[in-house]
Write a protein that binds this DNA or RNA. Structure first.
Lengths: 212, 212
DNA sequence: CAGCATCCGCTTTGATACTG
DNA sequence: CAGTATCAAAGCGGATGCTG
């Protein structure tokens, strides 16, 4: 990216991460940790492969990401955020906050990856009964199942599936997000095609407060 | 900007403000309040006039900014942030935080506008003696003089000049920022060409703690 | 002068094909 | 798997011209 040539912290930050795709690459690495090139391609649907290669090089030169040659059984290069790159988390979270409002409707041509759920989950959901035994909710809404778990008062999401989840949800991403975000109740979610099986108490325990 | 077509809050946010110049326009309006077209041009050195017009239209369509026809004596259109646009303040602040590190050196071709000082000032400086009478420091470092004032424990910066400031500073932006940011002391600042006149206690009162 | 719109050369992006 | 190569299309920057 051309520099703005402005002696201003915002402009300097955007000189580094203001390029198209750059912050989404940071999002992926924040969400998933070290990634292979193809993992990034999969998590960034729409990116051209030459652009991904370009951005990775630029971000590496800027000290935002680092590449390591992983030993077997991985036996390939992994890209991960440097400390400086992890310091971008507040930027990603601020954008998540601001963009959340635009998640109420999903466009026909919007693509979705299950692991993106981690962002709103860990940011908006809280465990309302942290002293009770931990719970697990399995969510099937995208390319892979996700597990939403309560851990020490916080709520985490990670890819995975289990036989003994407290609740299992199947539905489209927009309905799942509206349900967890407290924008709609279980009744309306079901009316919009969501399948819920298990303990509704588990859902209520982590569900976000309805916003005005 | 082309949409990313990703059902993810970060991507949706960047669909709106991820374009080149967009967040810098938001910065300007956050810092200065309602602006005329030419004010924005002056505060965004390097932007092409057609791009400014394009971005203003896009941001207006997205509900981020609004334009009003100001009555005399202004008698022109003013652009200002909508409520939704003001909600971008956390994004700007997160970028300010992250970009602050890159302010230690100023490039030869970096341009500077005094009012940009408001961002780091209000974000990093605190009044360490909020119960004492308020103080004012005049800073001359760019295109116009700025006044840094303590108000109810916070520190604000605004364009202006006064005859009875507690201290008056003249210097290049990098030295001024390093001094206020606590990266250097007054001795080194003077060695780097900064002129300080008045009460050093006023400076120490608002100066940021040295960072590691 | 404020507030754009138009034109033009250059750079960046996106889609696809190809390689070690 | 992890990129590089190629090329058309879109976006950007700079200059200039137009309108109230």
């Amino acid at each position: 990216m051309r520099s703005y040539h402005q002696y201003c912290a915002v402009a300097k930050a955007l000189d580094v991460v203001g390029d198209r795709w750059s912050l989404l690459i940071v999002r992926e690495l924040l969400l998933r940790g070290p990634c292979r090139y193809t993992d990034l391609q999969d998590g960034l649907p729409g990116i051209a492969t030459n652009l991904l290669a370009d951005r990775l090089r630029e971000l590496e030169e800027a000290g935002v990401i680092e590449r390591e040659t992983a030993p077997p059984p991985i036996a390939t290069t992994l890209h991960h955020l440097s400390k400086r790159g992890q310091a971008l988390a507040p930027v990603i979270h601020a954008l998540t906050d601001w963009g959340a409002e635009m998640m109420v409707e999903i466009a026909d041509d919007d693509v979705f990856r299950s692991h993106w759920l981690s962002l709103p989950t860990e940011h908006f959901l809280t465990d309302r009964d942290p002293d009770a035994p931990p719970i697990t909710i399995e969510v099937n809404t995208g390319d892979q199942p996700m597990l939403i778990e309560t851990v020490d008062g916080a709520v985490h999401a990670r890819p995975g599936s289990t036989g003994d989840a407290d609740a299992v949800i199947i539905g489209t991403p927009d309905v799942v997000i509206a349900l967890f975000g407290g924008m709609i109740g279980l009744r309306e979610a079901r009316a919009r095609g969501l399948k819920f099986r298990g303990a509704t108490s588990a859902l209520r325990r982590v569900q976000a407060q309805p916003r005005t």
